[in-house]
Simulated assay, not measured.
Amino acid sequence: MIKIGLIGCGTWGRNYIRNFEHLDDVKMYACCDFVEKNLKHSKRVLPTIKTYCNPEDLIADDEIDAIIIATPAKTHFDLAKKCLNSGKHVLVEKPLTLTSKESKTLIELAKKQDKILMVGHIMEFNPAVVRLKEIIDSRELGNIYYMYLNRTNLGRIREDVNVMWDLAPHDISIVNYLIGQEPKRVSAKGESYIVESTEDVVFLLMEFESNILASIHVSWLDPCKLRRTTVIGDKKMAVFDDTENVDKIRIYDRGVTYNPKTEREFEDFGSFQLAYKYGDIHIPQLQLSEPLKNQCTHFVECIKTGNKPKTDGENGLRVVEVLAAAQKSLENDGVFVDIE
């Protein structure tokens, strides 16, 4: 029986309680939060759960095998470090840390302690994203030109991190996962309209060695809630809309090809041949399941088997490297910054 501890019992933390409690060979053993109301709510969700007010007391509990960290991003490094040093497996919510150096420290510590370090990049456990990856890898879309992602809504505005560190980790992990590589450089532009020095809207551009472009738009100031990924290939195009209940992926048999004439065939300025294709729309059938449950199940399996998690520390580091470079770009008027 694997006993799980949770640090951070807000709304998202209670989702972890619900999911882990329904897994085989797992007991949601204890939780911790500074806010008494959150602990009481957690007790209503799971009356048998043990509660702590101090994270260090939970970390020191020898009954606990693994700890979930669902706290503000600025606390991730210190808490994860203490958990690993105490011999606990760790699942950290995104982003793993706020600097690449801190992420590398946790990766090395997990290796030294021979413990699982996993990051909550939940979108990589979304069946629709996994299916989209299969579609791209099968070359059904052809060569990928570019993709753009929208993650917008009205609120929740935070003061501890800007909107990019809050929302973009999801989309950066999606892009890295779909393309199968890390960008070579990034550029980011944003503005702080509500809270001074805290960007509430950011436009992030990622460039890859394969000439693929990926654009990410994140905002706390948008009238519409969007969770959409659009992928443009030279054969077909695909759209993943996570706000759809059932038909989350649509494949468009559409495209354009350019066939320039030879020089002597030019009759006037701009003479060329364009061929447009307007084909059918295909909606793949998906076996939908809750991404968080899939993520929790994977974490438990990795603890049991010792296998490397799909979203391990290295995966988390790659996302943090993009965020750190994008932050430098934000502070320097959108200049492109190379990924270290």
Rank of each mutant, 00 (worst) to 15 (best):
Lys308Ile: 04
Thr262Trp: 13
Leu288Gly: 09
Trp165Glu: 07
Lys101His: 10
Gly313Thr: 01
Lys27Arg: 12
Asp25Pro: 04
His41Met: 14
Lys293Thr: 13
Pro72Val: 02
Asp222Tyr: 08
Arg185Thr: 09
Pro223Phe: 09
Thr105Gln: 13
Lys328Thr: 04
Val319Ala: 08
Val130Ile: 13
Glu21Leu: 13
Asp247Thr: 06
Thr198Cys: 11
Lys236His: 01
Glu314Ile: 07
Ala214Met: 01
Cys31Ile: 10
Ile64Met: 13
Arg131Thr: 07
Asn143Val: 12
Asn150Lys: 14
Asn245Val: 15
Ile283Leu: 10
Ile7Asp: 03
Asp62Gly: 11
Gly190Asp: 07
Tyr252Ser: 08
Gly306Ile: 02
Gly233Glu: 00
Asn245Gly: 14
Leu178Arg: 00
Lys261Ala: 13
Trp12Ile: 15
Ser219Lys: 01
Lys308Tyr: 00
Leu117His: 12
Phe34Ile: 15
Cys224Pro: 00
Asp200His: 05
Val161Thr: 07
Ala168Pro: 08
Leu213Asn: 06
Glu196Ile: 11
Tyr148Phe: 14
Leu154Met: 10
Gln181His: 03
Glu56Val: 13
Ile135Leu: 02
Ile172Arg: 03
Asn259Lys: 13
Ser192Leu: 12
Asp312Leu: 03
Ile249His: 00
Ala188Gly: 03
Lys225Ala: 11
Asp33Trp: 09
Val246Cys: 12
Thr198Ser: 10
Cys302His: 11
Lys277Asp: 02
Leu91Phe: 09
Asp137Pro: 01
Val201Glu: 08
Val35Glu: 14
Thr11Ala: 12
His89Ser: 03
Glu134Thr: 01
Asn153His: 10
Arg158Asp: 06
Arg158Thr: 08
Ile194Phe: 09
Val35Asp: 15
Thr230Met: 09
Asp280Lys: 15
Lys94Arg: 09
Gly190Tyr: 09
Asp114Asn: 11
Asn38Thr: 03
Asp280His: 12
Val26Glu: 04
Pro183Gln: 03
Glu331Val: 04
Val337Trp: 04
His22Glu: 08
Leu23Pro: 02
Asp242Arg: 14
Leu167His: 05
Asn85Val: 02
Arg227Lys: 14
Tyr52Asn: 05
Ile212His: 02
Leu149Asn: 03
Cys83Ser: 14
Cys224His: 04
Phe266Ile: 15
Lys310Asn: 03
Ile303Gln: 06
Leu39Asn: 04
Glu199Gly: 04
Met123Gly: 09
Val218Glu: 03
Val186Ser: 05
Asn126Tyr: 08
Tyr16Thr: 04
Pro284Lys: 01
Ala324Phe: 08
Ile194Glu: 10
Asn126Gly: 07
Phe34His: 14
Lys37Met: 10
Ile107Val: 01
Phe208Arg: 04
Glu182Asp: 09
Val300Gln: 14
Val319Asp: 04
Leu274Val: 15
